[in-house]
Structures are given as structure tokens and as C-alpha cells.
Write a protein that binds this DNA or RNA. Structure first.
Lengths: 393, 393
DNA sequence: ATGAATTAGTAAACTGCTCAGCATTATCCA
DNA sequence: TGGATAATGCTGAGCAGTTTACTAATTCAT
């Protein structure tokens, strides 16, 4: 709690930022509205917003048709297109690149399938092509990007490496930060996919009202991401949420209950097998229902461990299996009731497989915001990454 | 991230607080030193500290023996005795009351044994007597107390009740806040004992350097308290850390391995039995070592679940058994190595059974600080509790 | 069409804070 | 006793935001 002294210039900077916050994410606003939102007087807001306009952070919209009485007000709009960020999901089967403006509006999205067996070099090459395509479609250069966040499977350490375990072949030696640094001078961040999905769920998903969230990435692999007190919980070594590694938690083998369910067509791929079982369970097939129940039972142990450890407000069921949440949530609730002291709300994700890239976008935007908070807002330009981070070879 | 606008008066308040922060916990300081610490100019600090003195928050120490050349500087000292807080541990076997000044110096400590079977009324009566005695010895009245925090066993909800489970007989219907409110008009807080002990370890204990801590309260009961990103993690319903409730985690039965160890003198009380086993294990007794290993194995599952879920920097082994940490920590480390992805540091608590009351003091001081931050610092007087909280009958 | 009502924009006066610089004061040391 | 040194006290300049009052632009009712 080291409060540090303030002077006038810092105060002006803070008030400037409070205007930006009040401007962003709202429809074009009048000075009076902004004054109310930011808790400042009208004249003060006037000069602040004036200088935001000259700096290029905001723009005026001259009054047009106006149905209220009185002199029509100019409306100011945050220039969301002053900068952009990239959110990238490097998955096992697909690569998803999202280009977003500073307000979080998605300007461009590109999905590309990728060979699950592809080596890191091939995967990076596919990522590069996807990025190129997105930038080209948007008419932008890498220098126009203010921050990049990448999501990968497996726990990620502070340098962006995945050193413990990952289903991506050869990824233990891959260094995404170094690879992207060759093209982007802006801050680059790598984060675990479950954590990013959790962030997305709180941003634009089903848990936007909650501050304490356990997010479950359920699919052929199972993982978890935690948001506590509104902030992403990374863990001291970046490995928070890896409860699946506990032997008593059978997350590794849980999906097998679905794949080995009697009656699954022999031709089905692993992911399709699970979908078939869920559908069959929905239709009342006894064996399928049993398989789902067994899957749920294994799943529940790990969820219960997280719930007991953290006592969250909401558990979000997301990932590839979340489309079948209707047949999973109720049995899961029953299992959790057995284990937990206090049952949190259970919700199904609606973001589907875009959640990871979306969370990456949000984290990149957060990075931009934190720069603004610490460095203040000069004219809008792409920030440069700390060179001190490059020594992480 | 709702930054709100600031004006001059707020700025002065913040600078005033930054002076208080710079003053507190330091030896009497000169204006120049304070200016450096607070990042303000010397004249500014001068008038601020002046008004702190007239308000009663600080006092001057006229220069005495001074070995440096030049005009001797006045030194200012935070008036830590301007207010006091109480930290109270209502345990199964004992009641511990600590009276602390605003700097966290313990002015008075009183420990009283209590019948483990005592009903809430009797326990409250004992608490009242202890408080009376402490206040009398310090020559204070209840009105001189600025905040009270109480530690009890079992998960505590927002109203201070323990509704789920507790080893204190009859406690499910007890309302410590209501009881204390009859005598104290200041803010009253009730918190779980493990959580308070965790706070104490980070404050004055063995984990003062860490921001992510799993604290283990090991004794005849086993519990955990979590500190994440430097803040106490309560959980949405106040039940964070209750991993012991999971069936796969055998925390309830774990201490039984010690009590049923062959060779324990039949006359020993439960607590003494464990101590005897630890001592025997230390002396090389095979059966005792086996019992300790079994105890540790059960303990480790729950710890591993917390470590995997949160990836903390440090695990602190505290509680009644922490005196025997020397025979527990090494086997515990070995067990954790089997379960965990990344092994955190393992440390033994040194605060003994004072940790709960000490954590209560820290939380009471935090309450005082947060009032200062939100309400600003008028003349130092005891704050009054929000009456809006009394409706929780 | 005209004036009242209403709201937005703008200018001036005022408050309160920080800061830079200089004069003053208290102490040590030769 | 007279420098040297370092802290204190004071004054004026500058700055940001608030308040107040006034002017400008628009709608609505008469």
C-alpha cells in the first residue's frame, strides 16, 4: 500500500484517462454526459476532451437531427481505430487470429485448420500466413499493432515458454515470443488457453457479472482457468488451475468414457464420438447416459477440488463439449452437490471455440490500458516492447 | 477499471495519506526524508506534516544530540498510540486477545484457557472478561478501540456467522458480531482462523516476501488459508480453502494416524499423543516414523490439490503441529513432488499459536487503513461501524 | 413570426496546491 | 569568534479545476 505523492500534471493525466474511460465503450457522448460519468465539472471536461481531439484520441461528431429542446450538443467519440491488437489462438487442430480495435470490436477474424501433428516450425509458418492475411485484408502493417497475445495449450511460464507439458508436438522447445518478436515491436504475451477462455467468458461471455470464476475447458482434453477478484489468476509459475494433474482427479481419462461407449459408430473420429454419445444421451439411450454420467463423475472430482479451494461464484462449462452442456450440466450439478460445501452457479459457455482468441484480445487490450495508466497518453502510437524482456532467450 | 476524476482537495488528501504511509513504520523522520519517500517537494511536505501535527496524527521530536554538522532537523513521528485495535482468537481450547496500536505494535496480550465443551454464551463471557482485563491494564475504554477482528474455526459468511460446520459446540447459532456490537461501536469483523493465520504469516511470519501463499493449519484439525496476489482470498461465500471437505482428501482422518500409533502412552491426551509420536519419530522409532509418513501422505493430497489449483510461491506449515515441522516437512516435500507439477517452497511457521490473533490484528489494521483511504483523515478518532450492517440479525 | 424555455459553449475570477529559489537560522568546527 | 553546513521559512510563479455568469443555438408554444 505504498501511496505515492501526486502533483498537478499527474492529476491532469488521471482526469484525462478518466475521460477516455468514460468515452470508450459508450455511444458518442456530450460534454455534460462525460462530466457526469467522470465526476468532473463541465468546463474541465471541455478542455480535456479538446486536447484528446487534438492528440487524436477522440473525434467530434457535429450535431445532426436532434429532437430535444435546447442547443444541440457536440458529441465526442473515442477513436477506437487509433490502434489495434491481435489475439491469436494456436490450437492443436486450428489457428484463430482476431484483429480488434481499441474498443474490443473485432475488425477481422481468420480461422485456419492445422495438422495436429505439425511441428512448431510448420505451426508458426501457418500462424504467420494467417497474420499476414488478416493484416492485408485490414490494410495494416505490423507496426500498426499495439499488442499481441497468443494462447497455447499447457502451462506457460513468465517468458512465454511451455516447459512442463503440452499436447502440441515439439512445443516444449518452441518460443512464440521470440518468433513473433521478429515482426512485432509491440508487447507480446503468451498465455495458457484455459486462462484466456476464462477471461473471455468474463468479458463477453456468460460470466460478465461475476468476479470469482472457475472456467472449465471441457473437450478431449480438460483444463481450468481461474478468475479471482476480477483478475486472471496465473499462479506464481503460471501453472494455476492445473488440478487435472492430481492422480485422484481423473481428467485425463474422463473423456474415454465417451469414446469407448458401446454403440459409437466405428468410423467416428474422437471428437465426433463424444458428440455422438451426447446426442444419443439426449435421445434417451441408456448406455450413452451411463457413459455421460461416468464422464461427469470423473469431471466433478476436479471441479469440486477447485470449488472447495476457491469458493467461486460461478463455474462456467466451456470448451468443445460445451455445445452439449444440456446433458452434462444437470448430472454435474448433482455430483458437485455431493462433494461441495456451497454449490456455485453452473453456467454453459456460449462463446464456443472462439473463447481463447477472444480472451487473447482482451489481454492484449489490458496490456494497452496498463501502458496508458503507467506512461500516460501521448499521441496514439504503437508502444514498444520492453527490451529488457528479450534476454529470455 | 473505473478511474474517477480528481480535484485539488482529493489530491491534498492523497498527499496527506502518502505522508502518513511514509511516516508510519519508520523511525522519526526529517522533512527531507519524508519528501524523498513520498515523492513530494520539501515545502509541500512541510505544510502537510504541520497539519498532521495539529490534527494529532503526528508529533514533533525536538532535536537532541546531533552528530552531523548543520542545523539539526526536527524529526516527526507517527502517533501510533492515537488509536488501537483488538485481535481476538476464539479457539476451541483457548482465547487470545491482542491489543495493538496503529503501527501494529502489541501493547497487551492475554491468553485464557477455555473449556472445549463450553457453550457459546460461556465462551462469549470468557471473551468479555479477557477483553475487559486487557482494556483495564491498558487504561482504555471500548470507545478507544478503532476496529475489532475475531477469529473462529469454520467457514465464516459475510455476516460473521459460521453456518456450515464448526468444532465449537453450538456455534452455528452464535453471532459474534451482534455480541460485540453491544460494547463496540467501531467496525467488527469475524474471520476464519486459517485465513487469519495466513495473513499473519505474510505480515510478521515466515512468508513476508511472498504474494502467493497457501497456509496450512495443521493440528488435530486441518485447514488452509490462501493469500493470492498479496490479498487474503475469502471466497464468494467465505469458504475458500476448505479443500478438506473433499472425500479424496483425508484431512479429517489424517491426524488419527498419529493418535492410533502403537506405543503411545495410554494416558496421553489427543494433542499430547501427536507430540509424543513426533518426538519418537525424531528419535528414530520405526512405528512412529511410519505413522508420521501415513499422516503426511494423507495431508499431501489436499496440499497438492491446493498447489495444483493455485500454483503458489510458498506453502507454510503452521498450526499446533508446526513445532514438529522438522519431522514433517521432508516427507511432505517428497509426497508433494509425486503429485505436483511445480513444487513451491515449503516453510515452517514460527508464529506458533499466536498466528490467528496476530492475523486478526492485521485485518483490523487493514480495516482502519481502508477507512482512511476512503474517508480521508480527519482528527484521529474511533470510526463508527456502518449501521447498514446491523440488519443481519 | 416571435419570444420563452432550455441546453451548450465560453470566459473570467477564484481557490488551493506544488515548486523553485532565496533569505534566515541553528549548529559544528577550526 | 567566525566560517561552513544544512535545515527551515517565506515569497512569487505556475497550473488545474471549480464556480459563476454570460452568450449562443435550438425547440416549442402562442
Amino acid at each position: 500500500m505504498a501511496t505515492t505523492g501526486t502533483d498537478l500534471s499527474r492529476m491532469r493525466e488521471m482526469n484525462m484517462l478518466s475521460i477516455v474511460w468514460a468515452l470508450r465503450g459508450n455511444p458518442p457522448s456530450t460534454v455534460t454526459e462525460l462530466a457526469g460519468r467522470a465526476g468532473l465539472s463541465r468546463p474541465a471536461v471541455d478542455v480535456l476532451v479538446q486536447s484528446l481531439v487534438t492528440d487524436g484520441w477522440a473525434e467530434v461528431e457535429e450535431p445532426g437531427a436532434n429532437s430535444v429542446v435546447g442547443r444541440p450538443a457536440r458529441r465526442f467519440r473515442f477513436r477506437a481505430d487509433a490502434g489495434h491488437v491481435l489475439g491469436i489462438d494456436i490450437g492443436v487442430h486450428k489457428i484463430l487470429v482476431m484483429l480488434s480495435d481499441l474498443e474490443g470490436n473485432l475488425v477481422h477474424t481468420l480461422r485456419r485448420p492445422v495438422d495436429p501433428e505439425a511441428a512448431p516450425e510448420a505451426r508458426f509458418a501457418a500462424v504467420d500466413r494467417a497474420i499476414d492475411k488478416v493484416l492485408r485484408s485490414a490494410g495494416m502493417a505490423p507496426a500498426d499493432i499495439w499488442a499481441v497475445t497468443v494462447g497455447v495449450t499447457g502451462p506457460v511460464d513468465a517468458s512465454g515458454r511451455t516447459t512442463i507439458s503440452t499436447p502440441l508436438p515439439g512445443w516444449l522447445t518452441a518460443d512464440p515470443v521470440a518468433h513473433l518478436a521478429a515482426r512485432f515491436a509491440c508487447p507480446i504475451q503468451v498465455e495458457n488457453d484455459c486462462k484466456l477462455a476464462a477471461v473471455a467468458e468474463r468479458w463477453k461471455g456468460v460470466a460478465s457479472d461475476a468476479d470469482d470464476i472457475v472456467f472449465l475447458l471441457a473437450g478431449l482434453r480438460t483444463g481450468a482457468g481461474l478468475i479471482l477478484d476480477g483478475a486472471l489468476r496465473r499462479g506464481h509459475g503460471g501453472a494455476a488451475g492445473e488440478i487435472g494433474a492430481l492422480k485422484a482427479v481423473r481428467w485425463l481419462s474422463a473423456p474415454a468414457h465417451l469414446e469407448t461407449c458401446p454403440g459409437v459408430p466405428a468410423t467416428a473420429a474422437p471428437g465426433e464420438a463424444a458428440a455422438w454419445v451426447f446426442q444419443a444421451a439426449r435421445d434417451g439411450d441408456r448406455q450413452a447416459r451411463t457413459a455421460v454420467r461416468r464422464y461427469t463423475r470423473d469431471l466433478a472430482v476436479g471441479v469440486a477440488a477447485l470449488v472447495l479451494a476457491l469458493d467461486p461464484q460461478v463455474v462456467v462449462y466451456g470448451g468443445g463439449f460445451s455445445r452439449s452442456a444440456d446433458v452434462v450440466l444437470e448430472p454435474l450439478r448433482q455430483e458437485l452437490t455431493k462433494h461441495c460445501l456451497r454449490l456455485p452457479e453452473l453456467r454453459a459457455s456460449t462463446l464456443g471455440d472462439e473463447s481463447v482468441a477472444l480472451g487473447a484480445v482482451r489481454l492484449a487490450l489490458d496490456e494497452v490500458d496498463s501502458r496508458l495508466l503507467s506512461d500516460g497518453l501521448a499521441a496514439p502510437t504503437a508502444p514498444r516492447r520492453d527490451t529488457s524482456r528479450n534476454d529470455a532467450n
